[in-house]
Design a protein around this nucleic acid. Structure first.
Lengths: 341, 341
DNA sequence: CTGTTAGCGCTTTCAT
DNA sequence: ATGAAAGCGCTAACAG
């Protein structure tokens, strides 16, 4: 098993030319076989495929994309991947892209517009066929780059503004209003609010505005309101509800900025001996699995995140060039009655 | 505002040559300015940068990577992104790659080795500088491709086998044993186990094996064991614990395959009026935030997922070529005493 | 400090 | 059904 001194010590990776030589055809024929394009005789195809297997050839998509000016890549710019909400969206995107042969390339912003700009610039360098980003809050530079690129752009999660190209999501303002209506119909009158940072999570603010607008329309105002500076979390929800209940007027229902916060509120109730709905109503947003697993199912709003990702990706794939006018795809939401409000 | 008939109707995206022409230098000089490489006079740099801004030029990394044979891409193949555990790992990877100028490209397997093979093949086509994948269970074809590519390979999460190149993670078998030791030291003797699908989650099985091995060493065996077919979830944990407690011998402590399942168990206790630790011990794995937010902090094991991702990416970036021998980086774990066991 | 030349590995014409 | 030539947009290697 000793290597002769003329044995290639570090054989370079096989390229198209190697496969062509081995199968005795031209490079373009191999290319056609691999891409299933153009007419190829069965005999040739077989020979080429055999050579591909023998060499372990893996096509270089860098070169392929450059030559064909078609990367089959879709840039996806999300605030976070640790947040299950965006992870679900990503799953939906993946589900729609995979069968069409597209690959998502993800960038993360940490809820920061300048980071988003950096991510978009870096993704555009890969010549994606389209780009998906969350929300409408972009820097001017981001907008310019997107416009110049002329590729398709989906803005997702939110539909409460005019999109660059297509928006896919739900109206958070309208959801906020419906939460108010639902809780009013349940007999609640003294509303409290427990939320997290608005600067980064603009959609939470829209829901809050919808909520308070509808309350105002009924001549009501919040009796208690508390917002923490950082991101939402179960722990924060728990502690913040405790703070709210320790001082001032006692609400008969508390609306949380999302399910994470609301589940924390639930935990506080457990620890404090309060029975949700009986002693105090709790209402979330998103419809996460954890809420449904609680001893009392959390009352919340289902936000159809998977669907948002899927429909956004499908819309982009269906029409590769930017349409003349903008469009909005409303994925809706559903009030999940639950048992806590 | 009417467009003359000789107005360029669809100006193509600017390329290096356009910037070069506009700034009156050669393409390579522009390239050097953009990449901050080689000596450039301040005057030239300024002129070039000006032209870049004016044209809105965005470098084409497809072409750059092809020409330099260096993609600055790192393939990341994970079982799931919806699972917070892997999302945390991904954050760690991102944290280490970003400052070094590398871009992660993610593929998802859904806990399936054939899907992993497909993902690896597809990522390899982008000529990544390295690849990160979860665990040691790969198909033969995956191993062959990885070997042929000669790029660096990090296998993460687990260190209970011999890696292809470098493994980064913790010993799940050893963690299982330590869980047994800890619970024995707390006085528990009648152990129950509630778990999820092993075929997909090999590491859960390793923990189980460590647990039962250590129990056997003390002359003990599980008094109850139940595994569901599907993936772990809070709901599944809740229902499965209920099932276990409804029949047969009553354990004094239940070890869950992970925190998701354990939190579900906790919820069952709440609903059934059982007080954790007092009536029955509950023990999880991972150290998720949710466990710490429960009215009684969940007893569990911290698995340092962010660190796993970070160290894996750092190891790859630090040494771009495959070393002669394999290495193992142990990120360890810590028993989190909590209040439920 | 700047430029010239020659490709990277593939796909697009356009022939045959 | 197959191939030859040209070139995608960029960078390495060598001048100068």
């Amino acid at each position: 098993m000793s290597a002769g001194r003329d044995a290639p010590p570090q054989r370079a990776l096989p390229v198209l030319a190697d496969v062509a030589r081995l199968s005795g055809v031209s490079e373009i024929t191999v290319s056609r076989v691999i891409r299933n394009k153009g007419p190829i005789s069965d005999k040739t195809r077989e020979r080429v495929l055999h050579a591909v297997a023998e060499t372990g050839y893996v096509p270089n998509r860098l070169a392929g994309a450059l030559a064909s000016a078609d990367s089959m890549l879709v840039g996806v710019v999300l605030p976070s991947v640790t947040n299950i909400v965006f992870a679900d969206v990503l799953r939906g995107i993946h589900e729609a892209l995979a069968p069409a042969g597209y690959q998502p390339v993800v960038g993360v912003t940490g809820y920061d517009a300048d980071e988003e700009e950096r991510a978009v610039r870096s993704l555009l360098a890969w010549q994606p066929a389209a780009i998906i980003l969350a929300g409408f809050e972009h820097t001017e530079a981001t907008r310019r780059m997107l416009a110049a690129s002329r590729i398709r752009v989906a803005e997702i999660m939110d539909i409460d503004a005019t999109p660059i190209d297509v928006a896919v999501g739900l109206s958070h303002r309208s959801a906020g209003r419906d939460i108010a209506r639902y809780l009013l119909s349940r007999g609640y009158r003294r509303f409290g609010y427990v939320g997290h940072d608005w600067d980064s999570d603009h959609r939470a603010r829209l829901r809050f505005e919808g909520l308070t607008e509808e309350l105002a329309a009924q001549g009501l105002a919040l009796v208690a309101e508390r917002r923490i500076a950082g991101p939402s979390s179960t722990l924060a929800g728990r502690e913040t509800l405790a703070g709210v209940l320790a001082t001032g007027e006692r609400p008969d229902v508390v609306v949380f900025s999302n399910d994470d916060m609301a589940v924390g509120g639930y935990f506080h109730c457990l620890a404090a001996g309060l029975v949700p709905r009986h002693d105090i109503g709790l209402f979330g947003f998103n419809g996460l699995e954890i809420g449904a697993a609680l001893p009392l199912r959390l009352s919340t709003v289902r936000s159809n995140r998977f669907l948002i990702g899927k429909l956004a990706a499908e819309a982009l794939v269906a029409r590769p060039d930017r349409p003349a006018d903008t469009a909005i795809i409303n994925t809706g939401y559903e009030i999940e009655a639950g048992e806590t409000a």
